[in-house]
Design a protein around this nucleic acid. Structure first.
Lengths: 208, 208
DNA sequence: GCCGGATCTAAGCGCTTGCTCACCCTCGTT
DNA sequence: AACGAGGGTGAGCAAGCGCTTAGATCCGGC
């Protein structure tokens, strides 16, 4: 086998964009540790240990522990926004696009709830500039969902008295999936996605 | 003024049940610190400092930092459960009781979002036994909401294909208010409560 | 006027933390 | 065979952590 090759089929492998391989192993270890115990309760020794390395190895690939969190947060938010935009930019009626958005967004938060938990709940552990950068990405997620709802109202598909309030509620509902979802639980990510898509359509008063 | 009196009108003062006063000051300081930075990022020196005391004073009133978190969590969950039960045990149709429950539950999570944030998101920082105790309280909250929805379905008021899934979603929606609610924001706790009560009635298919 | 318990503090102990430093090993290249 | 660069390690530093201890201060009851 050729040795120089890097991350074959990189796009759909979860952390395929992170190279070299040692940096990715550290990042994956950090995601697990942060999700289990929280950023502040996780030690650099724990992260390095999970990746099968010495504590010092971490600092070859990342300047600080906070930079690790930022990389995780940035990649995760980019992915989340990409999912929402793919649904929003689709064709068909607003109801279909909203259901699509919720279904895939929820599925991501359930399937990758370890990552999502870090991405969604460790925002405050970031430094001020990194935090501001991530907050901006969240604003764009909000705008994307709001746009679908706006269009549904304009087309007469939805009946929504408070668009911005409903937008917050929809995103909030989806995001919180990463807090309670458990792989051992009764429901699959697909099932939760379908259930939530239905609930959201009811929230916006889409006729069934 | 008489000096010996303790916590006049104790019931409705937020932390009135905590005595003596120094213990309450420490607990209030801990709630603020935990909400701002998270349990693990908060130091005992920070808590004591906010309460205007030396670090050692904390250990006169609490055995450990974890006991402080447990006290906060226990009182908070008791209050939350009390709110839900008061609405569930009321009279009138299920739709009215569900709206009541959501309205007051959300209002609490918005008004006291500092406390709620600690109560809802720092569960994992508790030790195993304390954690188990709190998880049991959450199960009861879930059962309380599920009961209202069950009764609404039985009475033909609601149309809900998946009662347990919808119960989770309703509670999840309410709890997440404490994550995003901001006192400086556009909405008052009353407004968010009213909006969410309406959204939840739509979720259960209550005819308006 | 003195006592005993409760409350609070200054100092600091033992340990862990994020991070660094001096050095080593494994390479493809010459 | 020698090299230089990049990935890795073992040991450890300065700082900060949760928590303890010895002693000062307050205060109602005799």
């Amino acid at each position: 086998m050729s040795a120089a090759e890097e991350t074959p089929g990189a796009e759909d492998v979860p952390w395929g964009e992170v190279t070299p391989e040692a940096a990715r192993r550290l990042l994956v270890a950090a995601v697990e540790a942060f999700a289990e115990r929280g950023y502040h309760a996780t030690t650099t020794r724990d992260i390095a240990g999970r990746a099968g390395m010495s504590p010092a190895a971490l600092y070859i690939h990342y300047k600080t522990k906070e930079e690790l969190l930022h990389r995780i947060s940035r990649i995760g938010h980019d992915k989340a926004l990409e999912i929402l935009r793919a649904a929003a930019d689709g064709e068909g009626p607003a109801a279909e696009r909203l259901a699509d958005a919720v279904r895939s967004f929820v599925r991501w938060h359930a399937e990758r709830h370890t990552t999502a938990r870090v991405v969604q709940y460790e925002l405050d552990a970031l430094g001020p500039e990194h935090r501001a950068e991530i907050v901006e990405l969240r604003r764009e997620s909000d705008a994307t969902v709001r746009r679908i709802i706006d269009e549904g109202v304009a087309a007469g598909e939805f009946e929504v008295p408070d668009v911005s309030g409903t937008t917050v509620a929809v995103l909030s509902l989806c995001i919180d999936v990463s807090r309670w979802f458990n792989t051992q639980g009764r429901r699959t990510p697909d099932e939760v996605g379908a259930l939530y898509a239905d609930l959201v359509l009811r929230m916006v008063g889409a006729q069934k």
